[in-house]
Design a binder for these strands. Structure first.
Length: 289
DNA sequence: AAAATACACAACCGCATTATA
DNA sequence: TTATAATGCGGTTGTGTATTT
């Protein structure tokens, strides 16, 4: 025994509404209102439609002051915030967005915001980092797997090092404590590269200056510390103290924003870590889908 | 240029809740 | 008070259009 249908499906029209039908429904409702009963409305308005269909058409489309599409960033933020608080209670979320219907918010979520939400969730998750360690020259090297703000796979490493017993991890958070290697020689070229004697745990270090344009609007001239070791390159912006071991900087400096699909920040494709990280990336991609 | 695929949004379905007789 | 109808809601599907192959 199924549920009793709300109307005779063989006698009502289904699918998209024609402009004529819209006019009939709109005119009827503006003149008479719902009369407190959607089920009997189609008959009274002379529409071959199910009452529920009429209600939906009116509430989601024909009703005055309804906005369609063009969600603003502020609206997106409200939806994202509320979704995180109360989940998929679309009518409640829509009630906080004047002119928006629950159906519209739900559609917008399913087509656009869900990805944004998942990405930020994954970013939060990935920010914690994937860690594994091994010993290189008596330094503990922690390998962190994360996403940079472009959503690109990024790989960085931090040291639990013998260099300073009071500092357990060298990262962007405490890079001001990073013991700089001794400057041994200076070379000049068009990128103003200064070569520095390598530190015991680094194969080589360079300081260089270059003007970098972010997204065509945000330009910054930074002095970077570039260090290389056997897992790849590391860049630290000496003015902001932000470091990144990433081909992200490589790509900006060398190719603008022309990222390669499978770039992994800071990882030498010939290194033993590369396949390992690709595997991890595959797992994350599956998790994202 | 045609077919396949992806995307956006409208509409439907059935269950839960609320209103009414 | 309770049975039934109407309404509200959210998951899901359908449809037209845009983009890619």
């Amino acid at each position: 025994m199924g549920r009793a249908p709300c109307c005779d499906k063989t006698k009502v029209k289904r699918g998209p509404w024609s402009p004529e039908e819209d006019n009939i429904l709109k005119n009827y409702l503006e003149k008479n209102g719902t009369g407190g009963n959607w089920i009997s409305l189609p008959q009274k308005a002379d529409l071959r439609r199910c009452g529920k269909s009429c209600r939906l058409r009116w509430l989601n489309y024909l009703r005055p002051d309804i906005k369609h599409g063009g969600f603003t960033e502020e609206e997106d933020n409200i939806i994202l915030t509320l979704y995180r608080q109360i989940g998929s209670r679309w009518s409640v979320i829509a009630a906080n967005l004047p002119g928006r219907t629950d159906n519209d918010v739900k559609n917008h979520w399913n087509t656009k915001l869900k990805k944004k939400h998942l990405a930020s969730q994954n970013n939060n998750f990935l920010d914690i980092g994937y860690n594994f360690t091994n010993n290189i020259n008596s330094s503990d090297l922690n390998h962190n797997y994360s996403r940079n703000y472009h959503g690109k796979l990024d790989y960085s490493n931090t040291f639990t090092s013998h260099m300073d017993p009071n500092v357990t991890n060298y990262s962007s958070k405490n890079c001001d404590q990073f013991p700089f290697p001794t400057l041994m020689e200076i070379q000049e070229n068009d990128a103003t590269i200064q070569s520095i004697q390598e530190d015991s745990s680094l194969d080589s270090c360079q300081i260089f200056q270059k003007c970098v344009t972010f997204e065509e609007t945000n330009t910054c001239a930074s002095t970077f510390l570039k260090s290389t070791n056997n897992t790849g390159c590391n860049y630290m912006d000496l003015s902001s103290g932000i470091s990144s071991s990433s081909s992200y900087y490589d790509d900006i400096l060398e190719n603008g924003f022309d990222f390669q699909e499978n770039d992994i920040g800071g990882v030498d494709p010939n290194s033993s870590y590369y396949n390992n990280i690709l595997e991890i990336d595959q797992l994350f991609k599956e998790f994202e889908n």
